[in-house]
Nucleic acid binder design. Sequence first.
DNA 1: CATGAATGAGAATTCATTCAT
DNA 2: TATGAATGAATTCTCATTCAT
Lengths: 203, 203, 203, 203
Amino acid sequence: MEERLAGNRERILAAARRLVAEGGLREAQIAAVASAAGVSAGLIYRYFKSKGELFVEVLDFAVKHEIEILTAIVKGPGSARDRLHAAVESFTRRALEGPNLAYAFIAEPAEAEVDRARIRARKKFGDLFKAILKEGIAAGEFAQQDIDITAACIVGAYTEALVGPIGPSRTGAKDREKLITSISEFCVRAVSESASPQRKRAS
Amino acid sequence: MEERLAGNRERILAAARRLVAEGGLREAQIAAVASAAGVSAGLIYRYFKSKGELFVEVLDFAVKHEIEILTAIVKGPGSARDRLHAAVESFTRRALEGPNLAYAFIAEPAEAEVDRARIRARKKFGDLFKAILKEGIAAGEFAQQDIDITAACIVGAYTEALVGPIGPSRTGAKDREKLITSISEFCVRAVSESASPQRKRAS
Amino acid sequence: MEERLAGNRERILAAARRLVAEGGLREAQIAAVASAAGVSAGLIYRYFKSKGELFVEVLDFAVKHEIEILTAIVKGPGSARDRLHAAVESFTRRALEGPNLAYAFIAEPAEAEVDRARIRARKKFGDLFKAILKEGIAAGEFAQQDIDITAACIVGAYTEALVGPIGPSRTGAKDREKLITSISEFCVRAVSESASPQRKRAS
Amino acid sequence: MEERLAGNRERILAAARRLVAEGGLREAQIAAVASAAGVSAGLIYRYFKSKGELFVEVLDFAVKHEIEILTAIVKGPGSARDRLHAAVESFTRRALEGPNLAYAFIAEPAEAEVDRARIRARKKFGDLFKAILKEGIAAGEFAQQDIDITAACIVGAYTEALVGPIGPSRTGAKDREKLITSISEFCVRAVSESASPQRKRAS
DNA sequence: CATGAATGAGAATTCATTCAT
DNA sequence: TATGAATGAATTCTCATTCAT
């Protein structure tokens, strides 16, 4: 029955994940999750203290997975530039292929707890990019810049670019590749020294 | 009595604006808005047909104001690079000074109407940036790139960078200037040709 | 200003009458009546203690008018049969030509007061028919019958038959005449001795 | 648990039926029905999608029952006259014994769905009477007449006669029999050829 | 007398959470 | 452990009525 317990827990999480991916948090009510998981609504509360806690875990799990993959890229070999490109590409590709959890990262959730988890998740992603940025700046690959702010910009850039195409209309495989490449290149350019010197605007 | 009427409408809009900025759409229920505006809940329906319409107006007003300012910059004189920098700077500065409506731009709203308004708003901002991008690319100031995707990235980048610091902790005036400059420079770099050629990552 | 007062009262009543006739009591809100009458909502309360009282008066006025006309017919010359026919015909014709207040007579009203007024109105109509019935029975024109119940049946019969055509679809002038005649003849037959003896049903 | 479910559904329907019979649709709010049924307001929505649907079912159930009984009479043996008499008698008897749902048949309801159901119900009753009328006319038992209009008149006649006595004051068993007989005989006379020729009124 | 803005008491509906079985 | 019926608090919206001007 430990078996059973674990199985139920997983099933509930999987169902919650699927529902969020398909219809956003708005459509992921407890009753819907229970039904999708093939368990009763009451049972969910045996595994999760509240709806918020369930979705925090859904979010955290998705984030953990991403973070692991991105960490491997960040800590892997290659120039900072290449690793940044690879990290963004890897993230966006999975976001476009798998169920749309990216949507949940930017969505305003119903529960305050989930909101906090969302912010933590963004911070974690930001931290990964900060690591690359630090190295890239030290190595002279990237321009001098505030890495906190740049990291936030990068996270924001690819998330926004993803939500557009993902949300309303699913694009074909060809467009998808273009999207992935364009976003990645945007991010790389954004951190690199420009060819011509950055002119100050006329105040 | 025109006085009273206009005053209330404004007060309701201001209260709605404030609540959204502080706690997101989640905390902006009709009762809360009414109480914050110092009127009864029923009165809101004298001025707005539904909750959705109220928040569409809140969003549209904020957007309209921004769009006007940004349009002036975009259509104004100067190089594409300078205008892009100025546009982002102008937007972020006002966002940091006023209430944080940037939050609403990324929120998942409860009402379908508001959702549509949010998408329209994003499109409008994107269109402005697309105009600069087109000119900048034609003039050889910017790198070759997909302007739709870049525009989305820019909007995402500065929104995320703004929401992070604004949401949880209010920064001092000095940090603020740094933030504004950093975001603006990020965006300019992101569209410009990099100094060293963009290398392809090792697949 | 006595002048003005009376004028307003009339205008309010007329507007209420029109709105009820057009859309039933459901659409006759105080605000709508005020606007149709060209006065403010508050003013209505200077002439009528409550919404219910206003519509009681609307009903009573319409009824009073009908009652006067029908009374003239009932107390007029002719056989009981002819007068009954004429009474029903007169009522149904005006109901079909004028605004549909008949609808309000059978509608379930929102206010208990109006409900009571409706019942009183039916009683009055019933009383008129009872007078003819009594005479007709005494004169041997009509069959022996309980005049209270017959009177109710008559009122119900023509009201129901009117509501069908009046409510959903307006019929042409030709159909209208047929309807009027058919209803009237139904009522006359209903009170008259049948050609063949009334057989008792097998219990 | 099937037990509980079915029991509640029935209890809710019974409570709704009772409230409508006693005070009309006006007094049958969801909260009142819930309280009368001894359940919470929310539970009603487990069994009925909306308030309208609940009352449509209340109406349809009452109608279905009546229609079945009346259909048996209409399609049964006997002369058209006898069957008409039996049908009206049967209906009025049950109406006087059970809760007064006749009221609902003439009520102006708040929900569009219920309105449509009410019209359907009237049509069904009308159709039954039309069947008898057609046969009776063909057999020479009844006078020549427009069967649509006559059917409406019959439905209206007995409904009104029922609502009058039922609504305000409950009568004794003896009066009840008289009422039933009188209404039935009214209806039979109404469709039958009169003993003396129908004279045209003096226009 | 006249206005019409403002109120506030409902009314329907949703859904996370609980609890008897 | 598992169920899912039941709860009830929360939320939007309506409209008769009042009252300051």
